[in-house]
């Protein structure tokens, strides 16, 4: 299977992936003289297999090229940064006016998630990546983090249950001297 030759220039190819001669572009033949099967249909308008263009490098160039629009603008980044500072300011202000812990926790988590989304979308420019990458990374993370929440019922159950002995000994030791 692996040995195939070019009928025109007699070059030998050991690679299964090569179906055309890389020098003159003619279709390769198997040792028994039969035509090598061409697995992928060639686009009619530009037949890259007939040229020596390193296709993989072209694709990588496209990857790097795709980053041109990544940058967004410095103005965008500065405005994201200002937003992050403003949201941090709101958080600190909430701390300053002392809300109760549950309300505080809810609001802080909400703001933190917004901040995280801003960082991921613009600074890590996930927004400019392909949707397939976003859908591969984000749902996995969200589901796994939600799974961690299974521990909370147990932590509420063990409230008033866990450190009572410890706390009484602690107060004793502090009263001793």
């Amino acid at each position: 299977m692996a040995a195939r030759t070019c009928p025109v220039c007699d070059r030998f190819y050991g690679d299964d992936a090569v179906t055309f001669c890389l020098v003159d572009g003619s279709a390769l033949v198997n040792p028994d003289g039969s035509q090598v099967e061409i697995a992928i249909e060639r686009p009619a308008e530009r037949d890259l297999s007939l040229t020596q263009i390193p296709v993989k490098e072209m694709a990588m160039a496209e990857v790097e090229h795709g980053d041109e629009h990544f940058a967004g603008s410095n103005k965008l980044f500065i405005s994201v940064w200002v937003w992050l500072l403003a949201l941090t300011g709101v958080e600190v202000y909430l701390g300053y006016i002392h809300l109760n812990v549950q309300l505080m926790l809810t609001i802080l988590l909400g703001i933190s998630i917004i901040k995280a989304a801003l960082i991921v979308a613009y600074f890590m420019h996930l927004r400019f990546e392909r949707l397939s990458l976003v859908l591969t990374l984000v749902p996995i993370l969200a589901v796994c983090i939600c799974l961690l929440m299974v521990f909370f019922p147990d932590s509420f159950r063990s409230k008033n249950n866990r450190y009572r002995f410890q706390s009484s000994t602690q107060t004793e030791t502090t009263e001793e001297p």
């Binding site: 179906t19 061409i38 530009r46 890259l48 296709v55 496209e62």
Partner: peptide, 16 residues
């Protein structure tokens, strides 16, 4: 089988 012969478009194919 023969990816080398594929065009650049096929290497970075559509979303899915």
């Amino acid at each position: 089988m023969s990816t080398e012969a594929a065009s650049a478009d096929q290497l970075i194919a559509n979303e899915w």
